[in-house]
Amino acid sequence: MQWHATGAVTLKLARKADFADARTLYSGGNSAYFLSGLADGTYYLELQGSGGETSAPLKLTVAHQSLTHALWLAGLGALVFLSTVAVIFRGARDE
C-alpha cells in the first residue's frame, strides 16, 4: 500500500464495508505499508488523516492460487530434486 499524505495517518483494515470491525494496521508518518498473509476473502482499507479526514475506502479481494495446482507442482519438484540427488550419489557407475 502506498499513499501521498502530509502529516501522520492511520491505516485501517476491515472485513465489513462499514468498517464496524476495523483494526488499525499502521499509525505514523510513513507513506507505505507492506500487507501480506491475509486469508481468502474481501477486505476494505481506509486511510485517516490526523485531522480526522478519511480517504474513500479501497476494496481488496484476496484469492490464493489453486492448492491442487500447487501440490502437483510440488510433486513434480520433489521428483526432479530426488532424481538429481540419485544421479549425484549413484556416481559414475558406467565409468
Binding site: 491475509l38 486469508a39 490464493h64 492460487q65 492448492l67 519438484g77 520433489a78 526432479v80 530434486f81
Partner: peptide
C-alpha cells in the same frame, strides 16, 4: 493478523519450495 503465513497449505509458498531449491542448485 497474517493467518496465511502460518498456513501449511499456503499454495504460493508450496510452489516456491522446490522452485527455490532447484534455482539454488
Amino acid at each position: 493478523e497474517r493467518p496465511a503465513l502460518l498456513d501449511m497449505l499456503f499454495p504460493a509458498a508450496i510452489m516456491a519450495i522446490f522452485n527455490n531449491l532447484l534455482f539454488g542448485l
